[in-house]
């Protein structure tokens, strides 16, 4: 009878083994450092939770219906902030994306600069941008619009530039060979390839921005976040329940609508 044996295992080189060991040690060190130096007051947290549980959780699930009108109005403002912000971002992102795409602006310098600008913009959390704009234009919804616009530009620009980089360049070359000028190439070779995906990403970003704009009010930039912070300061958990319900419903509806539209476009 024949005996079967497993094929020989691939041999790892010493370098690879060493690399693995070093990485593992680094990760372990990171975790040891993290868990040793963090200090959480478990006793207090548990004691608080035991006291507060009855005061918070049941109330969250029995929303305060008298606040519905006010909550609906704030939620509407949130949607407006997100809409205006994402549209601005979608427009601002286009030139930056063309700058960052390596197949559009001849020369690697431009694309590197563009990519740096985009990742720098992306590094600011929305709320931090909102702080800056609240100080600049005052505590109102327009600060939120500006924060969303700038915050989304980074991510949209990156996505857009990746789309531009993935287009079929042969069409562009064919048009160039036929003597088309830059404008014609842009309109007939580049735009038809990128517009559906651009729209799809802009709509997706609107989805993300609805979530983002619902918390901007915490620093005074309008929308439903203002009500969240009031409800939390007043320990008004019934109202918080209403707000939570409003956010869940609106976000779900917009996610659903947006994914339907995006499926249709692309």
């Amino acid at each position: 009878m024949e005996t079967y044996s497993l094929p020989p295992k691939p041999k790892n080189s010493l370098y690879k083994k060493l690399k693995m060991i070093i990485i593992t040690l680094l990760v372990i060190a990171l975790y040891v450092w993290t868990f040793v130096s963090i200090d959480i007051d478990w006793g207090r947290a548990i004691e608080r939770a035991a006291n507060n549980f009855q005061r918070v959780i049941p109330k969250l699930f029995s929303p305060d219906w008298t606040a519905t009108g006010e909550v609906a109005l704030s939620m509407l403002e949130t949607v407006f902030i997100a809409f205006a912000g994402s549209l601005m971002a979608a427009i601002l992102a286009v030139p930056l994306a063309f700058l960052a795409a390596h197949n559009m602006m001849g020369g690697k310098i431009f694309s590197t600069i563009g990519k740096w600008i985009l990742s720098a913009v992306r590094a600011f959390p929305d709320l931090i941008l909102a702080i800056l704009f609240v100080v600049a234009v005052g505590p109102n919804a327009f600060a939120g619009v500006l924060a969303i616009a700038i915050g989304s530009t980074g991510m949209l620009g990156k996505m857009f530039s990746e789309i531009i980089e993935s287009i079929d360049m042969e069409v562009v070359q064919a048009m160039e060979a036929n003597g088309a000028n830059k404008i014609q190439i842009l309109f007939y070779a580049v735009m038809p390839q990128i517009i559906p995906e651009f729209l799809s990403f802009a709509i997706y970003r609107f989805e993300v921005d609805i979530r983002a704009s619902s918390i901007l009010g915490i620093v005074g930039a309008g929308g439903i976040g203002t009500m969240i912070i009031f409800a939390s300061n007043n320990r008004n958990w019934n109202e918080m329940g209403t707000i939570l319900l409003a956010i869940i419903i609106v976000v779900t509806i917009i996610d659903f609508a947006s994914s339907r539209i995006r499926n249709k476009i692309v």
Binding site: I38, D41, R44, A45, A49, V56, S214, I215, T252
Partner: peptide, 27 residues
């Protein structure tokens, strides 16, 4: 899906209400 609709800061507000101010509700 429902979990994903709630923004992180709103969760933090609720957990702070529940556990008091500190690192634990944030985590």
């Amino acid at each position: 899906n429902i979990l994903r609709t709630i923004p992180d800061l709103v969760l933090a507000v609720i957990f702070v209400g529940l556990f008091g101010i500190g690192l634990f509700p944030g985590i």
